[in-house]
């Protein structure tokens, strides 16, 4: 993000607008002041500042919506918040309120890369529940070599780094399913897309944390064939773009 210099309080505003818009499609300044428990005048000031950065659509006395850039940035803040919160609750066994409060404060300060590691640690713990002395080493391998978190033992003992040179996207990188090359393995990190498509994807087992393999594309380049949970599925590239994955090997 180029607007990385956004102040903590502006990030809070962005986050608040995001939550309100998600619920009501557009936010009124009144909603925002209520949400953040601040005065109307501070809201107006913040909205001007956000508008100047082209993050919100706003005119006095009008409804507030996020611009595409604003929404992306807001999603990032929300993701950081939720990730930290999840880490506190799941790993540190903190209570909901404490976790929320701490996440609120830390979300602005912790670098994005570190937040990503928090997320992956939670994932790793969930998928490799055996623990033991090799746990942290396994996690290091998981982060550095991009071993699949499902293959804990492999992660622990594998010594040679995966040879993914020459591929435009290497292990550990985040991509969409449509970016995968035939033969590449990946783990689903997020399923986006609209109602019926998302549901259909989910019903066929395409959900977060599921490992997939790109098999091939059709002779004319589209659709794609993937292997998920022992089933061969075909889907079009545009549909595959709705699925975010992390490349494993």
């Amino acid at each position: 993000m180029n607007e990385a210099t956004l102040s903590a309080s502006l990030e809070d505003y962005l986050e608040a607008i995001f939550h309100i818009v998600r619920k009501k499609h557009a936010a009124r300044p009144k909603d925002i002041s209520k949400f953040l428990e601040v005065g109307n005048s501070s809201v107006t000031g913040a909205l001007r500042a956000l508008k100047a950065r082209k993050l919100v659509n706003y005119a006095p006395y009008d409804l507030v919506t996020l611009t595409p850039t604003g929404e992306e940035l807001a999603r990032d803040v929300v993701r950081r918040h939720e990730s930290l919160r999840e880490f506190f609750i799941k790993v540190l066994a903190a209570g909901n309120e404490l976790a929320d409060e701490a996440a609120c404060k830390m979300e602005h300060a912790v670098p994005a890369d570190l937040v990503d590691r928090f997320v992956r640690f939670v994932e790793f713990i969930e998928m490799c529940p055996h623990g033991g002395p090799g746990l942290l080493e396994g996690f290091r391998n998981h982060i550095e070599k991009g071993c699949r978190p499902t293959c804990f033992d492999e992660c622990r003992f594998e010594s040679s780094p995966p040879t993914s040179h020459g591929h435009p996207l290497g292990a550990g990188e985040i991509a969409t399913m449509a970016d995968l090359k035939p033969g590449q393995h990946a783990t689903i990190t997020r399923v986006q897309g609209e109602g019926p498509l998302r549901r259909r994807l989910m019903d066929l087992g395409i959900i977060t944390g599921t490992p997939i393999t790109m098999e091939r594309s059709a002779p004319l380049g589209d659709p794609l064939e993937i292997l998920v949970k022992g089933t061969h599925l075909s889907l079009r590239r545009e549909e595959a773009k709705a699925v975010r994955v992390r490349i494993d090997v």
């Binding site: 019926p196 498509l197 259909r200 994807l201 066929l204 659709p223 064939e225 089933t231 061969h232 599925l233 075909s234 889907l235 079009r236 549909e239």
Partner: peptide, 10 residues
């Protein structure tokens, strides 16, 4: 419309 998403059965 429904997505193209389709199983390629064995």
């Amino acid at each position: 419309d429904l997505p193209f998403l389709m199983e390629l059965p064995p």
